[in-house]
Design a protein around this nucleic acid. Structure first.
Lengths: 171, 171
DNA sequence: TCTATTTATATTGATATCAATGTATTTGGT
DNA sequence: ACCAAATACATTGATATCAATATAAATAGA
């Protein structure tokens, strides 16, 4: 009876040391905790901060582009909006031009919360930025961006329809 | 009444483009989806793969070091083990030497599942590695490691007891 | 116009994540 | 030996995450 379905320990060490997915998940958890801690006095988590900040635009955006910007599933965005709506920080409105769409808008109170959180973000971000070797931050962002874009480039079924990628946030 | 609690759109764009936390969360979600998709035929998620791989050692480890290795909260590990125990892939045993501790061990079936998943990981990882600019992967891992370590370096209360950091996995 | 398809979002169910808290065990000081 | 503190893990409650699926509205083709 082959007990030979054994992965050698050396392989485990290789995976531990090289897996980019593991490295990114670890950093994601650590940074999330760091920002969550820092932002707690403002009443926000890191994800809520990023989401609300992405809603701070001249024109209230629909959900699709916001989910794409945050690289999250659309159903995740629906769920993430719930607590923010309950707290009265975000408004979800119908778009009369297309009644399937929802328009997401920060309330005045939401903007105030975000304004209170901004200096905390600045200080926290400056601290982690300083902890990286000089010049690494920029390239790190580029690499992370490349990784974020990989979901679309990796053909999953043998045939792949063009994803119709909408612009997330114009500048 | 001051409506002046307004963050300018330019600041929103700055945060979107520079926030390392946001960049890492996005990459984490994208890579998680990518590996989850790839590993689905093996019946594993990316997190379950990393967790089970970290249990593939000569000696079954207790929970604390495993949670530290994965940079996750200990309560998260407790929860993450549940489905793996249900499927009979991981065994959680008491340590007679210290009855507070649990020892985590892959079952034979768990090892078989992991062995089936390994070539999928290799192929997927090779693909994302190739998508990065030459030589970036190594530095990227270093930077991510630096970020993962930041939770401990950032003093939260004014006084910080030394965390007694245990070695996660010896080599 | 009618209708099949596509698009945009919501719901459900399972797992992941962490803070706050609880319990059991060990350790250290006396 | 005793007891207070520290250590290791579990439980609860809230939110985050995504797959599968459902619903509603707009679009496109006949």
């Amino acid at each position: 009876m082959s007990n030979s379905i054994e992965i050698p320990f050396s392989t485990t060490l290789l995976v531990r040391d090289t897996c980019l997915c593991l490295h990114v998940q670890r950093a994601a958890r650590a940074l999330a905790r760091l920002f969550d801690d820092a932002l707690r006095p403002a009443g926000l988590t890191n994800g809520q901060f990023s989401l609300m900040m992405s809603l701070n635009r001249p024109e209230p955006p629909p959900m699709g582009p916001v989910a794409a910007l945050l690289a999250m599933d659309q159903t995740t965005l629906t769920a993430a909006l719930k607590p923010l709506q309950r707290k009265g920080w975000v408004e979800v409105m119908e778009n009369p031009k297309d009644r399937r769409r929802r328009l997401l808008r920060l309330t005045a109170e939401g903007k105030a919360v975000l304004a209170k959180a901004l200096p905390i973000w600045e200080a926290t971000h400056a601290a982690i930025d300083a902890a990286l070797p000089d010049g690494d931050a920029t390239r790190l962002r580029q690499d992370l961006q490349a990784l974020s874009g990989m979901s679309g480039e990796m053909p999953k079924p043998s045939v792949r329809r063009s994803p119709h990628r909408e612009r997330a946030m114009g500048e």
